[in-house]
Design a protein around this nucleic acid. Structure first.
Lengths: 203, 203
DNA sequence: TACTTTTACTAAACACTGTTCATATCTTTA
DNA sequence: TAAAGATATGAACAGTGTTTAGTAAAAGTA
């Protein structure tokens, strides 16, 4: 009796439909600006129905947050073609900035917003987030095998790099670069990143 | 006729009262968790009254955000007693982390939250925020006069340092260090910061 | 003092929000 | 076909930021 199987398929499909609508709305409106009623209206169901598939709003946005990480990891995986580990590291930095600028809403759920992290599922593990970090750490080990970053703890170095990159991106996204003129606001981060790269090459 | 003067004084006092209540509530509840009705109740006035003194909720929290920066700048000013500019820079870094950890709600309105920056007043200038950054830039110029950071643009270096420090603090505050075990979550940032200091000393 | 104007305040409403629950319908099993 | 189970929803709850129409007190003027 394939009834159970079909029901499960239906349930998964419905979840997918909710997620897709939420995703669409979220991308061009942001988290706080998308209500359960908005999502319900988009899928032509009652708001209460959504609670049959998701525990609460946070759970929906935790799912989207995971989805965003998959895209992020996908973009980073594309750089695997770059053979030299250090070149790949630099390219990753550039891609990171590009991702944050081109997909600000993704970046926000991934690294800035509080909500998705308050989700039950996530108390222990941070699936896709871990993958991203592990990828960077792995790459740094690769760099060490070519004689770079000798004597450095790759995990610590990964955190340092992540912190710097995230600092730049989040200050920019959260409009904290208004202390600079528009010109400076472009020049200074650019030069800072250039300096960061040469600094890494000397490390 | 001192009537006008007294009225202005009263108006200022009322603003102060609202701000103080909002501040108190905000510190132990956070931004989204404090409602206009909460503030109104605390000062024993109707919610509508608050709108006679502040344009909207954002304006209240922009004022608080400015207040937070004053405290921040105060803490940093205390370090003026350290004569050597480089030692002062290091001490500032330590104080920065301390401030973020001890006053997370302040740190959030200052550097993470979107809301206070969406305020009218703030479109052009970011008064207290600018002061903080200018202080750091000034200090770096001081460092250069003792032979450090030669050939570096102090504004660019200030941004690099700020980015790294903010990255660390905001990732921690926004619970993105769950990918680490509790032990690692303490060890790795600590070691990262140590490395950062020695790196600066070699720059 | 008496009358008018200005100011300070608020009750009530508007249009929302996330979430819950009793009720109803539709599907599967016995 | 009847009972059982899954699925969907209208309506409500308790809140949100904000606006408006109306009131009462204070200030200005005759």
């Amino acid at each position: 009796m394939g009834v159970k199987e079909r029901k499960e398929r239906d349930k998964a499909e419905m979840r997918e439909m909710i997620l897709q609508s939420a995703h669409k709305l979220f991308i061009d409106r942001g988290f706080e600006e998308v209500s359960i009623r908005n999502i319900a209206e988009a899928i032509e169901y009652s708001p209460a129905t959504i609670y049959l598939y998701f525990k609460d709003k946070n759970e929906i946005f935790y799912a989207l947050h995971n989805e965003a990480f998959k895209r992020f990891n996908g973009v980073m995986a594309d750089l695997a073609t770059i053979a030299n580990p250090f070149d790949r590291l630099i390219a990753m930095g550039e891609k990171y900035i590009q991702f944050a600028t081109e997909h600000p809403k993704y970046y926000e759920i991934m690294f800035i917003m509080e909500s998705p992290m308050d989700c039950e599922e996530n108390r222990e593990e941070w699936e896709e987030g871990n993958k991203a970090l592990a990828g960077l750490e792995q790459l740094l080990v690769g760099c060490q095998q070519t004689g770079r970053f000798v004597g450095q703890d790759p995990r610590v170095l990964a955190f340092s790099i992540w912190s710097y990159m995230h600092g730049m991106c989040s200050l920019s996204l959260r409009k904290r670069l208004r202390c600079y003129t528009p010109d400076e606001g472009k020049r200074i981060p650019k030069e800072s990143f250039e300096n960061f790269k040469t600094m890494l090459s000397k490390l």
